[in-house]
Amino acid sequence: MAATQAPTRTVGAPTGTRPPADGNARAVRARRARTAGFHLTAGLLSLLWLLPIALVLVTSTRSFDDIAAHGMGSWPRSFTLANFGQAWNEGGQGHAMVNSLIVTVPTVLLSLLLASMAAFGLSRYDLPLRRTLLLVMLSGNLLPPQILLIPVSKLSEVIGIYDQLDALIGVQVGFGVGFYVFVLHGFMRAIPAEIQEAAVIDGAGPWQIYSRIILPLARPALAALSALSFTWIFNDLLWAITVLRTDSKMPITASLIGLQGQYVSLWNVIAAGSVIAAAPTVAVFLRFQRHFVAGLNLGAVK
């Protein structure tokens, strides 16, 4: 197209001012049609994707009588926030949310601390077998968790922390750390050696190099991993129901399944519970969207 247009334009330069203008108008119209088509397709797709979320938000604010009378899929005829209170208090979601945060926040901090230490050692020092160690640590994270479930639940019994939140923190740190080491290693390796050498000449020991130089420079990767690991750990169900037994100790995901059993067919309360359970990770996502997407791509071996 471009190759055939170019000669006619140069040949007919003096008289040919009108045809290109005409062609431009057509091109503009074609572009507008394409833009409209794009927004229509992308808009409909987004709408389809958001529909279940909109539905659960609407359901969570309807009264039971309204749903019973008109069905789940009908237009709402009531508005109440009482369902949230019911899920939060009687449904135990409030307590479960506290459990989830007690587990998630220390797990994120502890995993990233341990992982950054190991990644620092493996990437900045000429340790023997460093590559093997890195891959051994990564391979632990790639194992299907099922192979670990029974031994881990027995292990936590043996060391006396079964049915305690400590057990959940322990296994989440142990299982996740390999992946974080791998990602942080890739990031820290790219930091120029000169920076470290200059610090060594100035008399800095490994602790100063780690805490004053490498950690601050690795902030983008740490931020991305924090956002990502927060959602992973907060959203976990399998490890929780493996090492915990008592209802009052369950995190929000397991408590949501409990809610489903406790309020069978009270869809407004279940919907409110789902909204509560999803709110923290949605907040993290909206607040740290860029880190989040960057984190997902950091994890992909390029």
Partner: peptide, 18 residues
């Protein structure tokens, strides 16, 4: 992308109603 941040349990309950 939004559903990616939901837990699978919350996702399941969202769809269970539908």
């Amino acid at each position: 992308f939004l559903p990616v941040v939901f837990s699978l349990v919350a996702t399941a309950l969202v769809w269970q109603g539908m």
